[in-house]
Design a binder for these strands. Structure first.
Length: 467
RNA sequence: GCUCCCAUAGUGUAGACCGGCCAAUCAUUCCGGCCUUUCGAGCCGGUGACACGGGUUCGAAUCCCGUUGGGAGCACCA
């Protein structure tokens, strides 16, 4: 089987269904996974993609058994083309494309079509040697002009393009088009099963003509339905522009739908695999569900995500207390084996100073009791000035009064910025010590915020995975 | 316009090939309840679908036809 993207940029979620499902079939039935980079359109190539695509697949957990690049295979395409011309099923067309198209729709042959193999062989030579200039001639594969489906009638197999190719320079000027190169490669590389999107249904019919002309066995074609991916930025050409303008930080900007972005957010690639294998290969058109993917991802990462406090819009509160306050908080409420983190809160001049989320406090009235989670109780005296008084350490009194339980951080807590996929930046204070305890790239759960992948870049930062 | 593909709850999916075991599965979302030192965590419960119309049949989500709806293609893109 094969996965055959054009190297126009890095992979995004739109690519993952084909990549994962092909890989999954190979793994289940002992098949071979071929990555084929289809770079026969020199205008739509990003040289970096030759590196990025295998990396993306690697992150996805796809095992590449073999990798080929179409621009290494011009001679093969040329050789098969000659065969097709000799067989009288391909012709070099010099008719104006506009007219060629009209004739085709009308089901009529252009003059060139029936000239005979010898003439076309000569013309083919003139395509290769530069006698014909770009746009003047192209190689057409014959099908049936009276085919009831107009989309299937004669299609272009080779065209002339003079601009340089990032890999082959100006060594070749005649480029194969999708249907010709794909049919040749799929057969020569021994693909017995082709799994691709339903948008290729007509291409399959075209390619089958080539198989029949050359007496090749026709592989098993499977076409899954179209996927519409909501709320995602996927178009590589557009992303590239915006990166250049500085509107995105790069291909891994968390707002994007690239695999690099999903990786930066801390997605587990197994979530994508589970998602797509559950969706399967049926040919109904579907809309991609972030909700379902996120749910799968959450259950994969939750067990390993240590909990930490994060206080957005911090507000300082003070209360009188002479002695040290100690807190021991489990890293994961369901997994005590992950241990606890300990905090010592030291009073200064007989007063304790802590930050709490502004929103949690402003909603309470003067005189209400709150619980600083895992630390102690405080009765709010003057909310506007952030003044409270120590109210013991008995959680039951807070429950009786139905007081709020709030997160808190100490005065030496590091500031932290969290970048969300929606493009927002949450600014606040993270729990003291987190910068030492967390390894870069670790996925944690900031309680009441969501899962985040922490990193350091001029301070403590995090990409939001999801809630 | 022509051709092709498709149609089960908000989303995805099982059941369809081989009609009865389907008063339709599972997951997710949503809504309740329980639990919990605030976790979008766990447990329990609930709402919610066979697009429509004919036909075949004792019996249709399942087979046939039509309608409607959605999608794709008719490129010198892949």
């Amino acid at each position: 089987m094969r996965f055959a993207p054009g190297p126009s940029g890095p992979l995004h979620i739109g690519h993952t269904r084909a990549a994962i499902l092909n890989d999954e079939y190979c793994k289940r039935y002992g098949g071979k996974f071929i990555l084929r980079l289809e770079d026969t359109n020199p205008e739509k190539i990003d040289p970096e993609a030759y590196e990025m695509i295998p990396q993306d697949l690697n992150w996805l957990g796809v095992d590449i058994d073999e990798m080929t690049v179409q621009s290494d295979r011009f001679e093969i395409y040329y050789r098969v083309t000659v065969e097709l011309i000799k067989a009288g099923v391909a012709y070099v067309c010099t008719t104006d494309p506009e007219i060629w198209r009209e004739m085709k729709l009308a089901g009529k042959p252009v003059e060139d079509r029936d000239l005979g193999p010898q003439e076309h062989l000569e013309r083919w030579g003139r395509m290769l040697d530069g006698t014909y200039s770009e746009g003047e001639a192209s190689l057409v594969i014959k099908t049936d002009l009276d085919h009831r489906n107009p989309a299937v009638r004669d299609f272009i197999g080779m065209r002339i393009r003079d601009g340089p190719h990032p890999r082959t320079g100006d060594r070749y000027r005649v480029y194969p088009l999708y249907n010709l190169s794909v049919a040749i490669d799929d057969h020569l590389m021994g693909c017995t099963h082709i799994l691709r999107g339903k948008d290729h249904l007509n291409n399959t019919i075209r390619q089958e003509y080539i198989y029949r002309y050359l007496g090749w066995d026709i592989p098993v074609f499977m076409h899954y339905g179209l996927v519409s991916i909501p709320e995602s930025i996927l178009k590589t050409s557009l992303i590239r522009q915006e990166i250049q303008k500085g509107n995105y930080t790069g291909w891994s900007d968390v707002r994007l739908g690239t695999l690099q972005a999903l990786a930066a957010r801390g997605f587990d690639p197994r979530a994508l695999r589970e998602y797509w294998t559950e969706v399967g290969i049926k040919s109904v058109d579907i809309s991609f569900s972030w909700e379902n993917l996120i749910s799968k991802n959450r259950s994969l990462i939750d067990g390993g995500a240590r909990r930490f406090f994060f206080v957005p819009s911090p507000m300082l509160i003070t209360f009188k207390h002479e002695s040290v306050l100690n807190a021991a908080i489990p890293y994961h409420p369901q997994r005590p084996e992950l241990g606890m983190r300990a905090h010592r809160v030291l009073p200064e001049d007989g007063s304790v100073r802590l930050y709490v989320p502004e929103k949690d406090i402003m909603g309470s009235g003067d005189g209400s009791l709150i619980r600083l989670k895992d630390l102690c109780n405080v009765r709010l005296v003057d909310i506007c000035r952030g003044v409270g008084e120590f109210a013991g350490n008995d959680i039951s009194s807070v429950k009786e009064e139905r007081g709020k339980i709030v997160q808190w951080v100490g005065t030496r807590s590091p500031p932290m910025e969290i970048y969300t996929p929606e493009g927002e930046t949450l600014i606040g204070l993270a729990e003291e010590g987190i910068e030492k305890e967390v390894t870069p790239g670790e996925i944690v759960q900031l309680e009441r915020i969501g899962y985040c992948r922490v990193f350091f870049n001029n301070g403590l930062k995090a990409n939001m995975t999801h809630e």
